[in-house]
């Protein structure tokens, strides 16, 4: 069990307040004209996480990502590698928004500042 995740080969801390696993079963449910429930399921089960990634302005050490690294990762239009807290195996994930980064300090570029970036990480 690590206290970080690895996203696109960079380590990040996550916010304990909202970081949580997500299991998504694609489906649509409706009511038919006869009043019966009508559900259409999509293929598979989508697995991932939701919550905020903590990205410091300054890297705390080797292998750790900064807010700048995170921004680069989030801009990619392909799947990226991801290793969960509780795993040692990297999987490909899509990191989806909307991203609404929040600065912990009014001094956005202070070296001690951290950004909290909410994301949805879904396995590809």
């Amino acid at each position: 069990m690590n206290n970080y995740i690895t996203l696109d080969s960079k380590k990040y801390m996550t916010s304990s307040k909202d970081w949580a696993p997500v299991w998504l079963k694609p489906a649509t449910d409706r009511i038919t004209l006869s009043g019966e429930m009508d559900v259409t399921y999509g293929p598979g089960l989508i697995v991932g996480y939701t919550g905020s990634i903590i990205a410091p302005v300054t890297s705390p050490g080797t292998g750790w990502g900064t807010v700048s690294d995170l921004k680069t990762t989030l801009a990619k239009r392909t799947a990226v590698t991801f290793t969960a807290h509780d795993s040692s195996t990297a999987v490909n994930v899509h990191v989806l928004g909307p991203f609404n980064p929040a600065s912990m300090s009014p001094m956005w570029d202070a070296s001690s500042n951290e950004w909290h970036v909410p994301v949805r990480v879904l396995e590809a």
Partner: peptide
């Protein structure tokens, strides 16, 4: 298929 089903294409 009535009431529930899974789909793909």
């Amino acid at each position: 298929v009535e009431n529930s089903r899974s789909i793909s294409a």
